[in-house]
């Protein structure tokens, strides 16, 4: 019998008490024990960001975050973004801008964007680009994703829209 520990955590606002092995990552617990498969694992090395979830408001790589470390904490995943069937502004912006293709990075990208916007509700384009630096999308070339996050920002309602049309004043070029 493998060692088991009990953790108490909140997942998308719902209190959960789980008996798990210490080795289990938050991604495994979310996907395999709770059926929340929106959180994806890709690189499994904290590089790609596909598994990004929020733990007490901070973006974490669920692929390498031990579930026991979420004990006593609040975890938010993509499944918790919409409320009462209404998409969060950032989700709606992703729909409007077609800011995804295959969709495998999308959950992590949305959570990274959520953390970014909660920390900084009125980011500049450069701040959005920097804020998403750690999330890989292999399909879109990022252009519509950056536009969607700007559109979802508080400034996005008015000034942001104009800024998006203008194009990227801060595109520093390929590095």
């Amino acid at each position: 019998m493998h060692e088991l520990v009990t953790i108490e955590l909140s997942v998308n606002g719902v209190a959960r008490s789980l008996l798990i092995e210490p080795r289990e990552t938050l991604a495994e617990v979310l996907r395999d024990r709770l059926g929340l498969t929106g959180t994806k694992v890709s690189c499994d090395a904290q590089v790609c960001g596909a598994c990004t979830v929020l733990v007490d408001g901070l973006a974490m790589s669920a692929c390498t975050y031990l579930a026991v470390d979420a004990d006593g904490r609040a975890v938010r995943t993509v499944e918790g973004l919409a409320t009462d069937g209404v998409l969060a502004p950032v989700q709606q912006a992703f729909v409007d801008k077609a800011a995804f293709q295959c969709g495998f990075c999308t959950s992590g990208m949305l959570m990274a964007a959520t953390a970014l916007l909660e920390d900084n509700p009125t980011p500049t384009r450069e701040e959005v680009v920097r804020g998403l630096e750690g999330n890989i999308c292999r399909c879109t070339g990022y252009v519509p994703i950056v536009e969607a996050v700007l559109a979802a920002s508080r400034a996005g309602d008015a000034a942001g829209a104009a800024r998006i049309e203008q194009g990227s004043e801060n595109s520093g070029g390929a590095r």
Binding site: S42, C43, V47, E133, N135, S171, A174
Partner: peptide, 15 residues
């Protein structure tokens, strides 16, 4: 691995 095989990131995208 994805650590060493570098694919483009958001800051790499030009106008």
């Amino acid at each position: 691995n994805l650590f060493d095989y570098r694919v483009p990131r958001a800051p790499d995208v030009p106008e």
